[in-house]
Design a protein around this nucleic acid. Structure first.
Length: 115
DNA sequence: CTTCTCACA
DNA sequence: TGTGAGGA
């Protein structure tokens, strides 16, 4: 019923949706900025959240930030997200393979306006 | 045709 | 970062 992130896109689709080149997308992955899942054949599959994250990265980059700053930004961000996500998730289904759940967006916003 | 990795002009 | 090679 509550479908958060079900669709996965191949890198070609992500290129169009983000405006980034496949080269950049793969490079950012090597830098630990995104963690797409792989298919049996080894192809990357990105979630909607991955796309959103890449768009944020593109904007930060265009705004003059270097990848190092962006990476640190995301790490702090992810750290806070874990703090508010883990307590509200059943230990049985804790598979943090992807990004933050949309269901915590409200909590996310509060957290952001506080800092 | 699309994607993947690796390496280099 | 781009691009070409060589595979899957």
């Amino acid at each position: 019923m509550t479908s958060a992130e079900k669709d996965l896109y191949p890198i070609g689709t992500v290129e169009k949706k983000t405006g980034l080149s496949a080269r950049q997308i793969r490079y950012y992955e090597s830098m630990g900025l995104v963690n797409p899942v792989r298919t049996n054949g080894g192809q990357r599959r990105y979630t909607e959240n991955d796309v959103l994250r890449l768009i944020r990265i593109k904007q930060m980059r265009d705004s003059g930030f270097d990848l190092k700053s962006i990476k640190e930004k995301i790490q702090v961000f992810e750290q806070k997200l874990e703090e508010i996500s883990l307590p509200s998730v059943n230990p049985a289904q804790v598979k943090l393979s992807s990004l933050y759940p949309v269901s915590n967006r409200a909590v996310l916003m509060k957290l952001l306006e506080k800092k």
